Simulated scan of single mutants.
Amino acid sequence: MKMRFEQSFKDTATKLALPGVDDPKVDPVELVTSWLSEVPDLPWLVILDNADDLETMFGPQ
């Protein structure tokens, strides 16, 4: 699930043509999150559908 999550953010970064998207050292989640945070007055919401295993998403609690 984590790989699909990261791949979806990479796909989003690619569609947005964000700089660094092709760099394997760049975290696609961080890249998209940073881009969203740079746009003032643009509220955003990420919905994680079927994310019923918190340990898979966020590691051991």
Rank of each mutant, 00 (worst) to 15 (best):
M1T: 14
K2T: 13
K2P: 10
K2I: 15
K2M: 14
R4T: 15
F5E: 07
F5S: 05
F5L: 13
E6V: 13
S8G: 13
A13C: 03
T14Q: 14
T14A: 12
L16A: 07
L16M: 07
A17F: 12
L18K: 00
L18D: 00
P19C: 12
G20F: 01
G20P: 04
V21F: 04
D23S: 05
D23F: 06
K25G: 11
V26M: 08
D27E: 12
D27P: 01
D27W: 03
D27S: 08
P28F: 02
V29C: 07
E30M: 11
L31K: 00
L31V: 00
L31H: 00
V32R: 02
V32W: 00
T33F: 04
S34W: 09
W35S: 01
L36S: 05
L36A: 01
S37P: 04
E38M: 13
V39F: 12
P40R: 09
L42E: 04
L42R: 01
W44S: 02
W44Q: 01
L45Q: 08
L45D: 08
V46L: 05
I47W: 09
N50P: 06
A51W: 03
A51G: 07
D52F: 05
D52Q: 10
D53G: 03
E55T: 14
E55S: 11
T56G: 13
T56C: 14
M57W: 09
F58T: 10
G59T: 05
G59V: 03
G59E: 06
